[in-house]
Design a protein around this nucleic acid. Structure first.
Lengths: 105, 105
DNA sequence: ATTTTTTATCGTAAAAAAACGATGAAAGGC
DNA sequence: GCCTTTCATCGTTTTTTTACGATAAAAAAT
C-alpha cells in the first residue's frame, strides 16, 4: 500500500480496517463466523463459492487485520470473530462517519 | 472486482462501501471535506501529498460510491460530503458490526 | 482575444490483490 | 506404520488499484 507516513495514523488505521472489509467474500466469512455461537468453523470453505486456497488466503487477511482470531490443530481449524476488535472498529467508524455528517456543509 | 453475483446483495454493498474507504488518501479527503462547513473546497489538492491527477481520481471514486457529491464549473470544483449516504453507511456498518459481536462465540 | 487557473481525462507503468491448482504439513483413524 | 482429511503455503497468472505526467476543457482575468 501507499507510503504509510504520507498520512496520519487515524487515516491509515481506518483505511486498513476498511480494506479488510472491502471484499464480499470476507464479509461473507465474517457473517458466517458470527452466525455460529461456537468456534467450530471448519466448514467455511463449503459455504463459499471459492477454492479452498482462496478462502484460506482471505482468512489470513482477516487474521492479520485482527478481525478474527484462530488456531489450527492438524486437520481442524477454529476461527472466531474477535469481539474486541469489532467493538473498536465500530467505534472508529461511527466516530468518523458521525462527525463527518455533523461538521459537513 | 470479483463476480458480483457470487455473493449476496448485502455483502456486495458493504464491501463496496468499505472499498471506497480503504485508502488513507480518500479518508483524508473526506475528513478535509467534512472539516469545512462550506462547499468551496478547491484546495484539496494542496492538502494532500499526491499529484493533482491522482487526487482527482480518488474524488471520482468517492463520487461513484456516492460518498460525496460535487459539481465543477470551469476552474472551480465544489465537492461535499453526502450526508445521506454517510447516514446509510453508518447504519449499515453499525448493524453488521454489532450483530456480529452479539452473535459470535 | 489571449492568457491564466483549475480541474478532468488519457495513456501508461508499477504495485497490489485475487484466484487457482499443486504441494506440503499435521493430527486422527484405519 | 500407512491412509485420509483438513488446512496452509507456494508458485503463477490475471485483474485491479495506484500513481504520475501530459494533455484537454472550461471559465475567469487581463
Amino acid at each position: 500500500m501507499a507510503n504509510k507516513d504520507l498520512f496520519g495514523a487515524e487515516e491509515n488505521e481506518l483505511a486498513a480496517y476498511a480494506k479488510a472489509l472491502s471484499h464480499p467474500a470476507r464479509i461473507a466469512i465474517l457473517k458466517e463466523l458470527a452466525s455460529r455461537q461456537t468456534c467450530i468453523c471448519g466448514e467455511i470453505v463449503d459455504v463459499l463459492p471459492l477454492a479452498q486456497s482462496t478462502v484460506s488466503q482471505h482468512l489470513k487477511e482477516l487474521l492479520a487485520a485482527g478481525l478474527i482470531k484462530g488456531t489450527v490443530e492438524g486437520p481442524r481449524s477454529c476461527y472466531c470473530i474477535d469481539p474486541e476488535t469489532f467493538k473498536k472498529i465500530e467505534l472508529l467508524f461511527r466516530n468518523f462517519l458521525n462527525t463527518s455528517i455533523q461538521t459537513c456543509c
